[in-house]
Design a protein around this nucleic acid. Structure first.
Lengths: 332, 332
DNA sequence: GTGAAAGCGCTAACAA
DNA sequence: TTGTTAGCGCTTTCAC
C-alpha cells in the first residue's frame, strides 16, 4: 500500500507538502499540481487510522439503537448517516436489542473509537445509569428521555400524540379504549401518561398493558385481551411493532375494523395504509429526528458549555378507516 | 484521556506488559492482576486508531448497499453486523441509492479505512466496473451478480424463484401474466429471465416492464398497465418495493385480489400477510445471506488464493390468497 | 511557501 | 516472563 512518503518522492516534494495538499493547507499552485499528479499516478489513499491518531479527532459519530430492523430506527439512522457523511464524518451503528449489557459494551466501544459524539436511544435502565457515570463525549438522546437536564435530546411529544389518538377515538364514539405499551423505554411510559390523562379527565377507565415491544408480544396480549370479559372496543398500540401485532391479532380472529375493534397506533410504516380500511396512526418525523439530533450534536461541539437542550417534535395524526365512527350495536 | 503509559506507571510495569494484558499475551498472574487493577483505577480505554495503525489491520468490514431502508438490506445488514461484532470486527455501512458516483466515493472510503473486507451489493453499472479495477481487499457480492468468477458472491436463485411464482400462477388458471422488474440491478434481469422462460415454454406472451425499483414507480406503472388494452390478469413484482407499489395500485383502483388481479412478488416483508387476502411471495433467506457473506469473507481471508465461490440460496414460496384460483368470468 | 523533525498511542521485535 | 525501543502513517510545530 502506497504511503504519503511514496507520493512525496514521486512528486519531488516533502511529505509535509503532500499532507498540506491533502488537508487543504497553503501550497503554491505549481507544487499542488505536481502532488495531485503524483497522487493519481500512485493511486495513493490516505490512511484514516493514522490521520485520526495524529490529528486526535476521529470524525466519527456513534449511533446506538435497539434494533435497526425497527423501521423507526432504520429511517432515523439513514438520516443520521446522510448528515454525517455530508459533514465528512462516519457512523458506527450498534444494536442493543434493549439489552443493558450490550449497551454497556457498545458504550465502551464508543470510548475506544474516541467518537466525536454519540446519538443514543437508551433503555429505561440505562437512561438512569447515564446520570451516574457521565460519558466523555457529547451525547444526544433520541426517542427516549434520559435524566432531565443532563443531555441534549430529540423526542416526540409522546403524551400529546397519544392524547390525540384517544380524543379521536372518543369523538368517534368509543368508550372502552385499551392501550398496549412497550415496557422497555420511557416512550411507553409517556404515551401511557397522555392516554390515561385524557381518559380519566372524561371519567373513563384507562385499561393498559405493558408488554415487550415486539409484534409477537403485542399479538399475544391482544388475543388474550379480546377473549377476556373486559374486552375493549378500541385499542391503541404505542409503537409500530405492537401495532403490527395488533393487526395480526385482528386478522387471526377475523375481526373487521373498526366495527369489531377500532385500532390506532404509532409509526406510519409503509403498510399501515394498506391493511384493512387503513390504520390510523401518529406519523413520527423520522427524518427530522435524525437531522435534528445531528444538528444538536454539531451545536454542542462548537459550544461545549451551553445548557442541555431538548427538542420536542410533534407527531402528525393520519386518520384512516380503522378508527371510523362507532356504529350502535344492532342487537342488544 | 489516559494512555497506556499512565496505566503502566500506575501498575509499576512497562507499557509492553500492559499491552500484553490487553491483547492476551503471556503475562504472569501477579502482574496481570496489578495491570487490571490499574486499568480499572484509571478508567483506561485503548485507542483503536493507534492499535489499528500499529497492528496494520483494521478489523473493519465495509458494507455497501443501495438503501438501508429497504427491509431486505436492513435484515441482511443486521445479520452482517451481528456476525462482525461477534468476531470482534466493526462495520462501516454506506448507502449508495443506486448512484454510481456514491458507489465510487464509498469504495474510496473503504480503501482509506483499510477495510479487512467488503460486502457489496453493486448496481449493474458498477458490477461491470468491478472487473476493470480490482479492489485491494477481499469482496463478497450480495444480492446481485458481478463479473463471473471474479468475486465470491451470495445470491438468490432468482430465475428459479421467479419461475416458481409463474408456474403457480399458471396452475391457478392465469394466462395473461405480467411482470414488473427493477431496472438498476442484475437481480431484475435474472428474475425476468426465469419469468420469461416458463411463459415462453408454454407458448405464452411474457409482457414485462422494467422500472426504477421504488414503490412509486411500481404503482404508477401498474396503474398505467391496468388501464391499457393489454391488461394482465396476474402480475409479478420482482422486489419488495415494487410489490408495495403494486399493492397500492390495487387498493387505489379498488380491485379485489385475486379476482380482479392476482398478485405475487418477492420479499416476505412483515406486512405482506396482512394486505387483502395475503400476498403470495418468495421469502428470501435474509439472515442466511448476511451470515453466509461473512463466512465467505472469513474463508477468503484465511485462504486468499482459492477460486471464487458463488453461494446460490433458494427462496421459499409462501402461497397466500392473492394468487387464489382464477374464477371463470361470470359474464362473457 | 516549504522542509525537517517530533510525536500521536500503540504493538512487536529484540534483548535480557 | 519482562522491559527497551523502533516505528506504523500521518499532521503539525518550528525553522527557514
Amino acid at each position: 500500500m502506497t504511503r504519503i512518503k511514496d507520493v512525496a518522492r514521486e512528486a519531488g516534494v516533502s511529505v509535509a507538502t503532500v499532507s498540506r495538499v491533502l488537508t487543504g493547507g497553503p501550497v503554491s499552485t505549481g507544487l499542488r499540481a505536481k502532488v495531485e499528479t503524483a497522487i493519481r499516478a500512485t493511486g495513493y489513499r490516505p490512511n484514516l487510522s493514522a490521520r485520526r491518531l495524529r490529528s486526535q479527532h476521529s470524525r466519527t459519530i456513534g449511533l446506538i439503537v435497539s434494533d435497526i430492523r425497527n423501521p423507526f430506527f432504520t429511517a432515523v439512522s439513514r438520516a443520521v448517516e446522510d448528515a454525517a457523511y455530508d459533514a465528512g464524518m462516519r457512523v458506527i451503528l450498534c444494536n442493543t436489542d434493549e439489552n443493558p449489557e450490550k449497551e454497556a459494551l457498545y458504550l465502551r466501544l464508543m470510548q475506544e473509537e474516541r467518537v466525536t459524539g454519540l446519538i443514543f436511544a437508551p433503555t429505561r435502565k440505562s437512561a438512569e445509569a447515564l446520570s451516574q457515570s457521565p460519558l466523555d463525549f457529547p451525547t444526544v438522546l433520541i426517542d427516549r428521555a434520559g435524566p432531565p437536564g443532563l443531555h441534549d435530546a430529540v423526542v416526540l411529544d409522546n403524551a400529546a400524540a397519544a392524547g390525540t389518538l384517544v380524543s379521536h377515538l372518543l369523538e368517534q364514539g368509543y368508550r372502552r379504549i385499551g392501550g398496549l405499551f412497550g415496557n422497555t423505554s420511557t416512550t411507553g411510559v409517556e404515551r401511557h401518561a397522555g392516554f390515561a390523562a385524557i381518559l380519566s379527565a372524561r371519567g373513563l377507565a384507562a385499561p393498559a398493558q405493558f408488554v415487550a415491544p415486539t409484534a409477537d408480544a403485542g399479538e399475544a396480549e391482544l388475543l388474550r385481551w379480546l377473549a377476556a370479559p373486559d374486552r375493549p372496543d378500541a385499542v391503541i398500540a404505542s409503537n409500530g411493532q405492537l401495532l403490527l401485532g395488533a393487526a395480526r391479532a385482528v386478522r387471526r380472529l377475523g375481526l373487521s375494523m373498526p366495527h369489531d375493534l377500532a385500532v390506532a397506533g404509532f409509526d406510519n410504516e409503509t403498510w399501515t395504509g394498506l391493511v384493512g380500511p387503513g390504520l390510523t396512526v401518529i406519523e413520527q418525523p423520522v427524518h427530522e429526528i435524525g437531522t435534528t439530533a445531528m444538528q444538536l450534536l454539531f451545536d454542542r461541539l462548537s459550544r461545549p458549555g451551553g445548557p442541555a437542550r431538548k427538542m420536542v417534535l410533534s407527531g402528525r395524526p393520519i386518520l384512516r378507516g380503522s378508527t371510523g365512527p362507532r356504529l350502535r350495536a344492532v342487537a342488544n
